[in-house]
Design a protein around this nucleic acid. Structure first.
Lengths: 237, 237
DNA sequence: AAGAACCTTACGCCAACCTTAAATCGGATG
DNA sequence: CATCCGATTTAAGGTTGGCGTAAGGTTCTT
């Protein structure tokens, strides 16, 4: 489920043959969750409903060009985008890349290259660096070491589970800021999370048991009713 | 320091003119920490000493080709790599991308496109996903921090509720301007609001209790009779 | 002076949240 | 492939704080 092949791909092109060709090649490579749109309106619709992980965007579309579409998309998300165009003009390429496209290919293209470039982007965006070092920080008496996954309190150590580390990491990244429950779920689970968010509560509770003096009256990991949670840390420096 | 321009860039090419040209363009764009190598050995050396954030790699090098270099690099780190080549053969591009290069450009190239593609990769790798951030601002002695959802007054902190944050956010967006009660309701309740707007008054009152010195004689969150409310802020800058 | 618009306070409800325990999953082990 | 064990999820009942309501007061407007 953490695999790149499970990522959702949106193809936007007004020519059905092109869409189907790309689709076919993607499926041959093992991708399965593929969406197609033939114009800007459809694309925007699909983006908010299916929430694809990456989009392959043709520049020429019946109801507006891909640049405008990209601009609209970037308003609400930073989903990666690979541009596709029949025109190979320099200006077009520069414009697309300048608007925040991640790559740009000129038709006709090698299907295999498209896959490779697509994979390169997906890899960068969704496969976080292997030995990404996680932070360690202090909460009162306790030291929360996410790198080694333990909570030290004097001479005793309590281990943290994978989910707890993921959640604490997200919370620490946004320390002293409200983190929505949604964002937390997204950080600890992969994109589509349909379970009760009661699950999140239980995990929060377990974390509190390890980092708080009185889990029922937390002073670090606080609830913000209706929004989410926040990890409050007063830094020494 | 979190800026993309501060990232370290390694240029590996055996032709000094090319290296210097790229260097020049990078500096014109604001990049400063640029390293140059003319062969594989130098490149490997620089990678372990300077630890660049990204590499621009020529395929043809005097002591081995860039593909081998990439393979060696990938053993120990997953530093992003942009390939550069005089040969435009399909096989080369596919090989480079297949080995895990992040992008591939064929000489001669537009310098500006190189910069854009480089930036696109850096952005993906090093720019943390943006999350909508709410403002923090000052009102007399108090600091209203909507991001962490608190009002700070000296060393004491008063938490804000979800509704209060939503309302203050809308008010701050239109600071020093009148915001109609209707607009406020729409901001805090998602369009389905059919209650008495007395409810709004109560919330305004509660906000005033947290941000005003004398809630009954407000000096920041003012009533505009018949229209709505406005948040008056004298900005320092 | 009277009506309209807004303020102020207090109270009760219920959705959001907490808590605990039991069920289920999944990797490791023999 | 059966068993174990810790991690995670589900479920169910309890708790509470934010929010809406209402009722009475105050200020503004004409």
């Amino acid at each position: 489920m953490d695999d790149l092949k499970s990522k959702k791909i949106l193809i936007v092109d007004d020519e059905p043959e092109i869409r189907n060709m790309i689709d076919r090649f993607l499926r041959k490579e093992g991708f399965t969750r593929i969406y197609q749109a033939s114009n800007c309106a459809e694309a925007l619709e699909l983006c908010s409903s299916a929430k694809p992980d990456i989009a392959i965007l043709d520049v020429m579309l019946p109801d507006g060009d891909g640049f405008n579409l990209l601009t609209s998309l970037r308003q609400k998300s930073d989903m990666p985008v690979l541009f596709l165009t029949a025109r190979g003009e320099d200006e077009d390429r520069l414009l697309g890349l300048g608007l925040g496209a991640d790559d740009y290919m000129v038709k006709p293209f090698l299907p295999r290259e498209l896959i490779l470039r697509l994979t390169a982007i997906l890899r960068r965006v969704y496969l976080p660096p292997r030995q990404e070092q996680r932070p360690a920080f202090q909460l009162g008496e306790r030291i929360i070491d996410l790198e080694s996954g333990v909570v030290r309190n004097g001479d005793t150590e309590h281990p943290l589970t994978a989910k707890e580390i993921a959640l604490l990491n997200k919370l620490y990244e946004n320390r002293n800021r409200i983190v929505t429950s949604d964002a937390l779920c997204q950080a600890a689970w992969n994109d589509d999370y349909y379970s009760y968010e009661n699950t999140l509560m239980v995990h929060i509770r377990r974390i509190r048991e390890k980092i708080e003096d009185q889990p029922s009256d937390p002073q670090y990991l606080l609830t913000v009713r209706g929004l989410g949670y926040k990890l409050m840390i007063k830094e020494a420096n």
